[in-house]
């Protein structure tokens, strides 16, 4: 292979990856790797931790320190890794089910502590690995194999959740604008604290088919149409904001990072 970026950061012998044709996960993953490349970080200093699900398989393909953990627990493992070795840049790759359902509590508390971990959620609105069950981010009314008559659950706004819980950098982007994902991951890694990046991606195989969303290119175009940049959004009159998904940098605040606080305690003795 002659693709420099892929060659440099992937375990290329393990490609092609397991993701379905048209799955957006590969796009998000490349965007993350591009951010690491742009920042010029040393591969040995990066630890990527994932949970269980389609997106969490990402760690297997990356040539960093990689830990593929149990369902929902990536942030709990990552907390142990970061606290035990603060020199590592810890990046968590997770999915909407992994992070918002079974791992929801870990997300809230990692954000509350403001521990220096960058979390990237690959949100495809479905449980793909198990064959298309509705997730906490499946839009109300949409179908999954466990919502054959349409999902009656309200869906989660993960960025609002992360912000409320205490994350100090929160942003959203889509696989339509993969360069924005890269920019946001760079900002997330640079932020000394808990950073939360929601990357909206596509699952043509399950979510798309079940909800008649068309093929992968069509679904990527739908992401473009559904979303609006944060600056443009706030210029819209209230009545025109309804139903639009806001992308861009949504929140940023300064707050002391968890390990810095702990180190202050250690140094006080």
């Amino acid at each position: 292979m002659g693709n420099n970026l892929i060659e440099k950061y992937y375990r290329t012998e393990r490609l092609p990856h397991i993701w379905c044709p048209g799955c957006g996960n590969g796009i998000v993953l490349r965007a993350i790797v591009k951010a690491i490349d742009n920042l010029g970080l040393n591969k040995d200093d990066i630890c990527v931790v994932s949970g269980i699900g389609c997106s969490s398989r990402a760690t297997g393909y990356l040539d960093f320190n990689t830990v593929h953990t149990t369902h929902g627990r990536a942030l709990a493992f990552a907390t142990g890794i970061k606290l035990a070795n603060p020199n590592l840049h810890v990046i968590v790759i997770t999915g909407d089910g992994d992070c918002a359902a079974i791992g929801g509590n870990h997300l809230i508390h990692a954000a509350r502590r403001n521990i220096d971990i960058t979390t990237v959620v690959f949100n495809n609105n479905i449980y793909g690995m198990t064959g298309g069950q509705y997730s906490p981010t499946t839009p109300t009314g949409d179908k999954g194999t466990t919502a054959p008559y349409g999902n009656i659950d309200p869906n989660f706004d993960l960025c609002e959740l992360a912000k409320s819980a205490g994350a100090t950098y929160v942003s959203r982007s889509t696989v339509y604008g993969a360069n924005m994902i890269t920019k946001q991951v760079e900002e997330g890694i640079k932020n000394k604290g808990f950073s939360f990046i929601e990357a909206l991606t596509i699952c043509p195989t399950y979510y798309g088919r079940k909800n008649k969303k068309g093929d992968a290119p069509e679904m990527i175009n739908q992401l473009k149409e559904m979303t609006i940049n944060v600056d443009a959004y706030y210029k819209l009159p209230q009545e025109k904001r309804e139903g639009r998904i806001v992308i861009g940098e949504l929140y940023r605040v300064q707050r002391e990072e968890y390990i810095e606080k702990y180190n202050r305690l250690i140094n006080s003795f």
Partner: peptide, 11 residues
């Protein structure tokens, strides 16, 4: 989960 993570770093 956290202790397993910590142990992976050698602690």
């Amino acid at each position: 989960s956290a202790i397993i993570g910590a142990s992976l770093t050698g602690v």
